[in-house]
């Protein structure tokens, strides 16, 4: 395989199905968002209930284990509880959220599902600083307090969320600081998912873009378990537009793989510079 060979990653099997249930629609506009979500971004619109169900059913027939809902902010979806039940009937479900829309009534309903669903149910709340100032500088004014309240309510109802932290400033991102914050909010088993910055979308402007050297090579892909190392070897992302290799690349030109999940369970190109981040960080969006 020469250096000019298209960088193709084989597809092994569908372990994880990502559903961009609210597309790029979000109630906040974080400065580091790699898909530039916000209240007015309708590039990817909300998915209909039927399209979510269709993707889930294909996932079941392909042996999917895990489903993740993301956006945008998934709890903006008017039928979110129905979507959650559909997913939890078919596999383990996780939801990526900013936590701001979770009130006591919703937390109670989510906690009930955590206790009674057939399969595992995780909520992952994003927070990019262990203090109001650190977080709100990136995620926007007022976000820290609302997110913390969402975490507190979830924990009070028995669903202890995972914290998702983007590692924008290495001096601030210590396990101890975030674990202490979680404990102060009633979380007894603090869990933190670290996310490296992807230098596209708004993050390209906030931080920096990719350097020319930050790209995979054909040599990298000769590694025996390359297709297990990159999440796109075992997952796909469905949005209202169609199917993409991962949640990171849904706005990148030429990354739409097809219209339906069943048509896209084949090898995909990993020549985007964001693929280099997953590779060198050993990163997967899944837990």
């Amino acid at each position: 395989m020469g250096e000019d060979t298209p960088l193709e990653l084989p597809f092994l099997y569908l372990d994880t199905l990502w559903l961009q249930v609210t597309g790029t629609v979000c109630n906040i506009a974080c400065l580091h968002c790699f898909i530039t979500c916000g209240p007015k971004n309708h590039t990817h619109t909300m998915m209909s209930t039927s399209s979510v169900e269709e993707a889930l059913d294909t996932g079941v027939s392909e042996g999917m284990r895990h489903v993740w809902f993301t956006g945008g902010e998934p709890f903006l979806h008017p039928d979110i509880l129905q979507l959650i039940d559909m997913a939890l009937d078919r596999g383990a479900l996780g939801i990526l959220t900013n936590g701001m829309l979770i009130d006591d009534a919703l937390a109670a309903q989510l906690g009930e599902r955590f206790r009674t669903a057939k399969y595992n149910f995780e909520i992952r709340v994003s927070l990019d600083g262990a203090t109001l100032e650190e977080n709100d500088n990136v995620r926007g004014r007022g976000v820290f307090d609302k997110a913390c309240e969402g975490i507190r309510l979830l924990a009070a109802h028995g669903l202890e969320p995972i914290l998702a932290v983007t590692t924008l400033d290495d001096s601030q991102v210590t396990q101890e600081r975030f674990a202490a914050l979680l404990r102060s909010l009633g979380v007894t088993r603090p869990r933190v998912k670290w996310i490296p910055p992807f230098r596209i979308g708004r993050e390209e402007r906030r931080g920096r873009g990719y350097e020319a050297w930050e790209t995979l090579t054909a040599h990298d892909l000769k590694e025996p378990e390359a297709a297990l190392k990159l999440q796109c070897g075992t997952s796909r992302t469905v949005t209202s537009q169609g199917v993409f290799p991962c949640p990171i690349l849904i706005n990148e030109p030429g990354r739409l793989m097809g219209g339906t999940l069943a048509d896209t369970l084949d090898s995909n190109r990993v020549d985007h510079q964001a693929c280099h981040t997953c590779w060198v960080e050993g990163f997967s969006c899944s837990t």
Binding site: R65, G91, A92
Partner: peptide, 24 residues
């Protein structure tokens, strides 16, 4: 069968996967 260090937990091993894996 597909990955020596895959974690098959009860709560993340749905029936659809069981059916698919036995068949595969």
């Amino acid at each position: 069968p597909r990955q020596v260090n895959e974690f098959l937990w009860e709560s993340t091993t749905p029936l659809g996967f069981v059916e698919w894996l036995c068949k595969t």
